[in-house]
Design a protein around this nucleic acid. Sequence first.
DNA 1: ATTCTTGTTATACAATTGTATAAAAAATTG
DNA 2: CAATTTTTTATACAATTGTATAACAAGAAT
Lengths: 216, 216
Amino acid sequence: MSRKTFQRLTLDERKRTLLEATLTCVAQQGLKGATVRRIAEEAGVTAGLVRHYFGSKNGLITSAYAYLIGQLTAEADTRARQSTGDANDQLRHFLIANMTMPNLSEEKVSLWATFIGRVRYETDFADIHREGYRDYLTLLESLIEPVLAAHGRPHGSAECRRHAIAVNGLIDGLWMEGSLNSGLYSRNILPDLVTGACERLLRLQEGSLSGGKQHT
Amino acid sequence: MSRKTFQRLTLDERKRTLLEATLTCVAQQGLKGATVRRIAEEAGVTAGLVRHYFGSKNGLITSAYAYLIGQLTAEADTRARQSTGDANDQLRHFLIANMTMPNLSEEKVSLWATFIGRVRYETDFADIHREGYRDYLTLLESLIEPVLAAHGRPHGSAECRRHAIAVNGLIDGLWMEGSLNSGLYSRNILPDLVTGACERLLRLQEGSLSGGKQHT
DNA sequence: ATTCTTGTTATACAATTGTATAAAAAATTG
DNA sequence: CAATTTTTTATACAATTGTATAACAAGAAT
């Protein structure tokens, strides 16, 4: 009876391995299927490591939620910054980043929803949600402000905040329903749809975000 | 050792009791806390009844999801129909119904999110989601069409569908973030915010939905 | 009243869960 | 190469879970 051979990893590598295994498990079968044993197997280790690195299963799950939120925001942020164009172009890229892969994915939305369901009764989750939401809103606000300015529209702090809340709602809703995609429409319409809708929300000139390829 | 005294209820009464107990439990502690025993206790019965009425725990949970979706849509639908005013007024009431109690509640959103997290990997949940979404979208479309017509704007089938998708996204997103309310803004701003945003999405005259009390 | 049906309780059980603890092996240090 | 550290495995255990089954009791039928 020889023991399993193994390799020691650095703290960060091992943690990331476990976090990603956790997300994989939760995405596949929900929290019910994400047992310590299954997660460990998915990560290629044994169950004891969870305690070693995260203290408890709950510590692992909580960290996995924060990890996911970080991924989502980072992706949209990066895509916006990669744009070399003007303010319109940056906002456009940000919007589209949320309506295309990898962010627009059934797996990501499933994970997100599963975790959101715990925000109400677990303070750890509530904290992560609040911070993530605040960051996202701030980022969106900072993208909207110069766009409004460039269009010669009012762009005070209160206005931007209000617009950011509405646009964020639009993004969240479309992201969710679009990812779960009930087969009622094609996902391909989402990028145009979100840019067009955002133009209207901000009362921009038609085509300023969608590049003139806009319907209706 | 005397047994628990009990009262026999009709099939519908008992089912509803169990469904509501289920939602209460899931809202309080998520699916993990919604054990057959806890649900039964909440309903004032013993665990065996779950099997008797719903076949299995999964049958109960699935039915509870359908029950919740029905409640949400019915409330918005009713509020829209209660309006005695014109098309604008009906759409306005529909929107507001989603931004006020009882639909705008942390409990309802928590429940909804928890269930949505299972849509991806359980066909029963996927079916319920798809149907509920389709119904909701159809209802919204039927409210939008006469509004566009009254404003002399294009109101073909494709246009209405497209608008309904966007408006639905807006509602979903605001409903969710507003209900979870991270303390970043007051819920009181949501009714005005959603009507104002919807006006813009549909490119209506300012104040047509919000009754002129609109900001920005 | 008595019988009959079936809604309801009570109990049992195998399976699974999270976690605590001890043993082993890998890498680091001297 | 020997000693040390600490990552990792392996095992054990109490608690909880969903469900199956049998006993019981409430209300309807006769």
